[in-house]
Design a protein around this nucleic acid. Structure first.
Lengths: 122, 122
DNA sequence: TGAACATTTGAACAACTGTTCATATGTTCA
DNA sequence: TGAACATATGAACAGTTGTTCAAATGTTCA
């Protein structure tokens, strides 16, 4: 059986076209992996809340913890993740470290998400 | 200590403005939760791959399994999740069930994600 | 230098997630 | 009706994730 062939549903006439279409447009494995990793970042309400705070201003870890009512440690762990995926950047000023958004896509990704969430409700 | 006050960083002058700004714009807890739940859906490469296939055509479970090289069961489980979050809809035609996209935001959310992923690379 | 503060880090733990396997449901057609 | 096919579902399992706690690092200032 040649690579690219699919056997299922007892039908073979649809699959040829379908496979060509899909294989042509599907990103490679690495990109799909990175994409999923990126969205995984947004899939946690603590990180989402951190991002919403950073939409408004550059904020230090301690303030983030205060505003969100969480431990500095918990926030710091999440900031590390956000920083690793280049969504957020850090700037040290004396004892404090200030975090801010590092990507313009963040706002639009979240905006689209909100639209979906709001529109699907009755 | 009044509701809304924050004590940290030995600074109090920034926080007042900051809190007002943030509290005014931050969505409520329910929406933040829904938003995180939505992005969690995109945070899995199997589901992302399913969505990319559905970008091209309406496809039955069995074909999806064939194209993605996975079990029908695994695909079906994921389709259930995608359907529950209104990203995908199902249509039965005889023995087969065809799935297709149920939301216009999906494409733009993923497009923004791809831009981020592609642009941050060297 | 040493005390005080802000942040980071690592280990540990419970909670959650995706796949597999076996089985059930639903549909067609002889 | 019953056999064959397509899909859905539930339990179980390994792997992952977010928070907590304790401890380390980094910075300022007296």
């Amino acid at each position: 059986m040649a690579i690219g062939d699919v056997e299922c549903c007892d039908e073979t006439y649809v699959h040829e076209d379908l496979l060509k279409k899909v294989r042509g447009k599907m990103p490679d494995e690495d990109e799909l992996y990175d994409l999923a990793e990126l969205f995984k970042i947004f899939g946690d309400s603590t990180r989402i809340r951190i991002l919403f705070v950073l939409f408004e201003a550059e904020v230090c870890v301690c303030d983030l913890a205060g505003i969100l009512g969480m431990t500095q440690s918990a926030i710091s762990h999440q900031l590390k993740i956000l920083k690793a995926s280049k969504l957020v950047k850090a700037r040290r000023d004396g004892k404090q470290v200030f975090y801010s958004l590092d990507d313009d896509h963040v706002r639009s990704i979240i905006r689209q998400g909100r639209e979906h969430v709001l529109e699907r409700e009755p």
